[in-house]
Structures are given as C-alpha cells and as structure tokens.
Write a protein that binds this DNA or RNA. Structure first.
Length: 425
RNA sequence: GUGCCUGUAGCUCAAUGGUGGAGCGCCUCACUGUGGAUGAGGAGGCCGUGGGUUCGACCCCCAUCAGGCACCCCA
C-alpha cells in the first residue's frame, strides 16, 4: 500500500454500494420534480468569479469557493451554488422562455470548507425553482414539492418537519419592537442562535447585537408565538392552500426560521430532522430580485436547495435506505474447461436475450472457486455446462441460496431460472 | 482560520521504554464436477513522515502530513 495517490480532501468515492444509494435518492428527486411538471436543466460547473461577486455573500466567494485563474488569465470558480447560474440563464433568454418557468437540477458543487460529518468539499445539490409568479400558491407548491420528496423517501412527519415563516411578517414584527433597520441583518443571526445557545448566553448575544432589554423580551415572546402567522395575510393564504397537497402533516409554522441569505423577501422555509441531531435538510424561500441582480428584468421566484450529504445521513439514521438497491447480476454461467467456453458464452447470450442480468466466469477454473466467486458477488443462480450436459443438450441450474440443483434440457433453462428467481428481480 | 482526538497487517483493533500480536479477510491444501462450515498450513508490516531524548523508542518530546470530531460559516 506504499504509493497509492490519495483522494482529494473532502471528496467522496462512490463505490457500487454507495452509488446505488445515490442513484436511489436521485431517482426519487427526479420522480417528484417531474411529477410536479418541472423540467430538468443544468448549467456549467465553471463560472466567472464575477457572477458570484454580484450577489453572493463575501464569505462564500472569498473564503469558501475554489477560485483559480485559467491559462487565459480569467478568474474562474467552481460553482458553490446554482442560483446565480439560474438567474443568468433566465436573464439571457428572458423574452424567449415561457413564464412562469418550473426548472429543477441536480449536480455537483464545491465549497472550500473543513470537512466533517455532514459536510464535504464536493457535494451534490438538488435545486428547484418556480420563476415568474408571486402567488401564495407558488410558495405552497414548492413547499409541497419538498414535503412530497421527504414523504417519498419514507420519512414520517414525526421524523422530519418543514418549518415555514415569512420575512415580511418578521420585518413588520421587528418594526413593532422598534428594532432599527440597520441592525436587522444582525438580529436575524440572533434569531438563528436562539436554539444553539443557553438563554443566558443568548440574551447576552442579543444585547451585544444592539437590543435593549425590552426588545429582547419582546423578541423572545415573538419567537415563541406559534400563532404569529395569523398576522400575515400571505401566510394565512399559504396554510389554507397547503392543505390541498396531501402533505400537510409535514409542514408547520415556526417564527424562528429566518434563513441566512439576504435575498429572500417573503416566504422562507427549512426542513429539519426532529430527532437527536435536528439537522437542517433543505432550505429555500421567495426571492424577488435575483434575475435583476444579474442584469435582467425583475422576476419574482421561489425555490429551494437540498444537499445530498445531510439527507443521506438522516435517511441512514432513520433506516430508510433499502437493503437491496444495486442491480446485481442474477445469473452466473460457469466455465468448465476450454472446450465448453463457447457453449457457456452461448448460454449467457440466451439468458441476456431473455432479459436476465448475466455474467460469465471469465476463465475455466475449479467449480468450487467459481461458486465462491458467485456467492461473494451475491449472485443467486449459477448455470453449469460441463461435458456431460453438453453431450446431452442439457444444462444444470443451481440455486446458490438453497443449494438446490436441477438438470434440464437447454430449451427449458429459462423456465427453470424463472422458478428459482425471487419474484422481484 | 481555531481547538480536541487519532495514525500499527487488506479491515477492525491490542501491545508496561527491552526481538511487533489477535480477530476477520486473503491464498494453498484436505476436496482434479459444486461455494458459505470445519481443520491444517501460508503470505502479508520502514509501527504516517522527519528530527530529538535514551545504552535501547510503536511507546516519551518536537515538527510535519493525513484522517475524524467540534467551533467558525452555512449561499
């Protein structure tokens, strides 16, 4: 093991078992996205640094992006998020694309962070957006898409919840508390910290952020008011409409959800694991100025993003990932000796024509070794074509799970295999 | 960027400063037309790397690299 070049820090290797899990998750994402009528799209993984400088936070671009200069001296970056790309793509064809548009995507992203549990430097992210409309129905649809996904993975409303809030409502409430506009971005952080600090620490942090004692008390009361949504016409409408999607159980109002991003303007939402770690699974909201930020017209939209790393951990911990995912071979044809090789290849061909996932042992070897190989690959059936079988136009079909073995005429082979195979391939 | 922990066989891990072990896995054989079991044998290591302390270092010290966890941040 001396000199194997190691993998890049924060990247993951997807061996077949891991790839099967990813495939399974991505298939659910695709299924849910398309069932709601969204179209798949994709942008480049490389973008000019300028694209992010326009809008994304300083920290994201300067500290957490892979930035480098190309041989032609352009400053490029491996995309840390998709939204600016989406905004650019929409702005470039703003008069051609039928609006509102419903687009979804899943692809790789990179952020230069210190890897730890639930966080890698290279990850996949599901993005889905509805652009060009501003209704509460649109907000409800996106939240419903998210909830439907969670439901399809098998997670229950006891295990995961989508918390919804509204930026305008919070702004209004902050005004009532006479919190100055200038410090509101900081106050959003204070809100965000509520569940992460002890009450004493949180109070100190809140005071340091510019609030007086009365405001802190008012804020605390606000954030524990589960009925606050009734003050927002948008949210009242939202919660009325969301009932029609059949996933109401997954959705709740929560005044503590604010989202870190500056560009959210209305509805914001975030899905959390309810169990021990209460990890954030996905997040999104309504934005009004994304497209205009990159030089297009003002187009309102709503969308969310979900990374693949945390959701996989949540699903794993919840035991929701099915055991048998990989499309493993169903049949292995053995090779008795050089003289039977051609016959074995023909048998394999017949099986493939019949639709079975079939491999052939790649060389003549002891039967025991061949069976052991099949067993280690978890292949349930073996077909044996030895000199005896070949002389009589027969073939032996062996069930490696039950050790049962039947010798049949070659035309009856497929029937015999069907009898042995578990009902679901 | 900051802190804590860990680097020993393919994997999981032991080893009081005195010649490096186990379990699992792997290979061979018992078994030249039949796998998981059993038994017997075998291969496999510059103890992450570089310095230092010591008569002597896997062990102690320093540095460095890598990994894990947490903080920061979370678009």
């Amino acid at each position: 093991m001396a000199d194997i070049v190691r993998s890049v820090k924060g990247t993951r290797d997807f061996y077949p078992d891991g790839m099967a899990v990813r495939r399974w998750m991505f298939d659910i994402i695709r299924d849910v996205s398309t069932r709601f009528g969204y179209q798949e799209y994709e942008g480049p993984c490389l973008e000019f640094l300028d694209l992010y400088a326009a809008k994304s936070g300083e920290e994201l671009v300067k500290e957490q992006s892979f930035v480098f200069s190309s041989p032609g001296d352009d400053m490029l970056t491996l995309r840390p998020e998709l939204t600016p790309t989406l905004a650019r793509m929409v702005a470039q064809k703003q008069y051609e694309i039928p609006l509102p548009l419903r687009w979804w995507s899943i692809g790789p992203f990179w952020r230069y962070e210190n890897p730890q549990r639930g966080r890698t430097r290279e990850f996949y992210q599901w993005n889905i957006d509805l652009v060009g409309t501003e209704t509460a129905a649109a907000d409800a649809e996106l939240v419903a898409v998210a909830a439907t996904f969670l439901k399809e993975t098998g997670l229950s409303p006891d295990q995961v919840q989508i918390y919804v809030n509204n930026r305008r409502l919070m702004d209004q409430a902050f005004s009532t508390l006479k919190i100055a506009k200038e410090i509101r971005p900081q106050i959003f952080k204070v809100v965000d910290k509520l569940d992460k600090l002890s009450e004493k620490e949180w109070r100190t942090f809140a005071m340091e952020s510019g609030l007086d004692e009365i405001q802190v008390d008012g804020l605390l009361e606000l954030l524990n008011n589960g009925e606050l949504w009734r003050d927002s016409e948008e949210l009242v409408q939202f919660f009325e409409l969301i009932k029609t999607f059949g996933v109401e159980d997954y959705i709740a109002y929560n005044p503590k959800v604010i989202r870190g991003l500056d560009y959210y303007t209305g509805t914001v939402f975030e899905a959390f694991e309810l169990g021990g770690q209460s990890r954030a699974i996905l997040g999104g909201g309504r934005y009004d100025n994304l497209v205009s930020d990159v030089g297009g017209m003002r187009l309102p939209g709503v969308g969310f993003a979900m990374g693949d790393v945390v959701i996989e951990l949540v699903l794993q911990d919840a035991g929701m990932i099915p055991d048998r995912l990989e499309s493993k071979p169903q049949v292995m044809v053995t090779v008795f000796n050089e003289n039977t090789l051609t016959g074995s290849l023909q048998i394999a061909h017949i099986l493939r024509e019949a639709g079975y996932r079939t491999v052939i042992y790649p060389e003549a070897d002891k039967m025991g070794k061949q069976f052991k190989y099949a067993d280690r690959l978890d292949i349930p059936l073996a077909v044996i074509l030895g000199p005896d079988e070949m002389a009589n136009g027969k073939v032996a079909v062996k069930n490696l799970k039950t050790r049962e073995q039947v010798t049949v005429n070659q035309p009856a082979m497929v029937d015999q295999i069907q009898k042995f195979l578990p009902s679901t391939p």
